[in-house]
C-alpha cells in the first residue's frame, strides 16, 4: 500500500463514511423517495396530458396499511381479505349464489421439487368454481395433466399466476410441502381441525 499523509487518509475516511451512510440512507429511504414521486408520471402507461390524470388514485396511496408483499401488486391479497382490511363485493346481482369450498389438494408430480398444496378456500373466496372447472381443471384429482412447462406458458395455474395473482417466480408458495416430512396421501387432504 502506498504511504499517504494522515490528512489525505482522514479526508478519504470521512468520504468513505459519507458514501456508506448515503448508500444506507438511500436504501432505507427508497420507498418514501419513490412515493414522493408520482408513480403514474412515467410508468410508460398513463398520459400525464390526459384531462383526468390527476383524478385517478395511485396504487401506493391506496395500498397504505395493506399487508406488504415483495412481488406483484406488493400486497398480500389473501391476508388483506382474511384480516378484513378489504371487503370486496361478492356479487352485484342479489340472487347470485356464493360458493366457498374448504378443500386442500396435494399434487405430487413435482420431480425433485417440493409438492404443491392447492387451497380451494383461498381461491374460492375470490373466484367462482366456473373460473377453473371444467376448464382448465377437471373436477377429479390427477386428471388434468398439469405440467410446469404449460403453467409457464400461461395455462393451468399460469392463467392467473403471472397475470393478476402472484407471479410464477414464487416457486415455494405453490411448492410448499416438503416431501421428506409429508406422510399423507396425494389428492384431497383431510380437513384440518382448528
Amino acid at each position: 500500500m502506498a504511504i499517504r499523509s494522515k490528512k489525505t487518509q482522514w479526508v478519504e475516511n470521512k468520504l468513505l463514511l459519507f458514501v456508506l451512510l448515503w448508500i444506507a440512507g438511500s436504501v432505507c429511504c427508497f420507498v418514501p423517495a419513490a412515493n414522493a414521486k408520482d408513480v403514474f408520471a412515467n410508468d410508460g402507461l398513463h398520459d400525464p396530458q390526459g384531462p383526468s390524470f390527476n383524478e385517478l388514485q395511485r396504487p401506493d396511496a391506496a395500498f397504505a396499511g395493506f399487508p406488504v408483499d415483495s412481488v406483484g401488486n406488493k400486497v398480500r391479497w389473501v391476508q388483506a381479505l382474511r384480516d378484513g382490511i378489504i371487503t370486496p363485493r361478492t356479487n352485484i346481482v342479489p340472487d347470485t349464489t356464493i360458493k366457498i369450498l374448504d378443500m386442500d389438494l396435494i399434487l405430487g408430480n413435482t420431480g425433485d421439487n417440493a409438492y404443491v398444496r392447492f387451497p380451494h378456500r383461498a381461491h374460492t373466496e375470490w373466484l367462482d368454481c366456473a373460473n377453473c372447472h371444467p376448464d382448465p381443471f377437471k373436477e377429479k384429482f390427477g386428471t388434468s395433466g398439469i405440467k410446469m412447462g404449460a403453467i409457464l406458458e400461461g395455462k393451468f395455474c399460469g392463467k392467473c399466476h403471472g397475470a393478476v395473482a402472484f407471479p410464477l417466480t414464487e416457486c415455494a408458495r405453490c411448492h410448499s410441502v416438503k416431501p421428506d416430512t409429508f406422510r399423507g396421501k396425494f389428492g384431497v387432504q383431510p380437513v384440518e381441525k382448528h
Binding site: V93, T96, E125, W126, L127, D128, N131
Partner: peptide
C-alpha cells in the same frame, strides 16, 4: 379487486 372479487366480473 379492492372493491370486487374476481368472480363478480369473471363469472357474474
Amino acid at each position: 379487486r379492492i372493491r370486487f372479487r374476481c368472480k363478480v366480473c369473471h363469472h357474474e
